[in-house]
Simulated scan of single mutants.
Amino acid sequence: MRVAIAGAGAVGRSVALELIDNGHQVLLIDKSPASIRSEAVPEAQWLLADACELSSLEEAQLETCDVVIAATGDDKANLVISLLAKTEFSVPRTVGRVNHPSNEWLFSESWGVDVSVSTPRLMSALVEEAVTVGDLVRLFTFRQSNTNLVELTMPDHSPFVGQRVRDVPWPQDVVLVAILRDNAIQTPDQDRSLEAGDELLFVSPEDAEDDLGQLLSPKD
């Protein structure tokens, strides 16, 4: 898979290293000469150019990319890059980095963004996940399907502690995808029992989250 990353700062370089380790081809684009540090990611291709300019993206041969990641520190630039990638080069998948939470609503299909990643929201969610027991924590939003990746740590008072996965009346369209227990990942087999302290990861429609939280950790 060929991936173009606009923005060769710390975030862009870190993503590039991960993708290269997973066997993908990566092109890093940045308009700042100071950011062109080919020694930091020697396996990547590098391009000194403004990714908001159509001519730069043509030079990058964006039409050959499977994914474009707009990872600059400027939300306006990330929106323009995503829109150009999608509308001018028909890139199958675009990922936009959200730097300021107030701009998150803009990162949608109307601006060519398939997946938005909000760094402030993600950090907040990880903090909540680390300290919260019994409350549903939203970790990630899949915008195209209006579903979220959510987490809940089973409290001692949950009525389903000791019950099997199959015996829980899960809300419609909610999918339990993993159980984290004793620093290990447990598959959510139908006969597996739930225990207090289990971290449960779900893919859930937004309108089912309240029912899911009330089911596993009733507040009344």
Rank of each mutant, 00 (worst) to 15 (best):
S158M: 12
D182Y: 11
Q144S: 15
I29E: 04
C52E: 04
A71G: 07
Q214M: 12
N146I: 01
V115Q: 11
V67P: 01
M123S: 03
L57Y: 11
T187A: 15
C65E: 01
N99Q: 03
R164D: 08
D210T: 15
Q45D: 10
W111Y: 13
S38K: 02
L54V: 15
L180M: 12
S118E: 04
G9A: 00
K219F: 02
L122H: 02
A196S: 12
D173L: 06
H157Y: 12
V80A: 05
V115T: 15
V117F: 03
L106G: 13
V203E: 13
D220C: 04
L27H: 03
V113S: 04
E128D: 15
D220W: 07
W170V: 04
M1G: 02
V175K: 10
S217T: 08
I185H: 13
L54S: 11
L136F: 05
P155I: 09
D189V: 09
G23V: 03
K219H: 04
S193D: 15
D30H: 10
Q45A: 08
A125R: 00
E53P: 05
G73T: 00
L122P: 02
D210M: 14
T72R: 03
P205W: 10
P155K: 08
G112E: 07
A44T: 00
D189S: 09
S158F: 13
G197R: 07
Q214H: 09
S90L: 10
T119I: 02
L139P: 13
R166K: 08
P101F: 04
V115A: 07
S38D: 06
I185Y: 12
F89H: 14
E59Q: 15
G9M: 02
L79N: 14
V161D: 03
E88T: 09
A6N: 03
L136M: 14
H157I: 10
G96F: 12
L79A: 07
A184W: 09
N22T: 07
L152I: 13
S204F: 14
H100A: 11
E88H: 15
V168Y: 11
E43D: 08
R37P: 00
D191M: 09
A10W: 02
A51T: 03
G96C: 08
L176G: 05
I179S: 04
L83E: 12
P92Q: 07
A60N: 09
D220N: 05
Q25D: 02
R192C: 03
S217C: 11
L152W: 14
A130Y: 12
E18R: 04
W46V: 04
D74E: 06
D167H: 14
V80H: 01
W46T: 05
K76D: 08
T94V: 08
G96S: 10
A49F: 07
H24Q: 01
L216M: 15
I36F: 04
D210K: 15
R13L: 02
L152F: 13
L216H: 11
L27W: 05
V68F: 04
S118R: 00
S204I: 15
A44I: 01
P169K: 04
E206K: 13
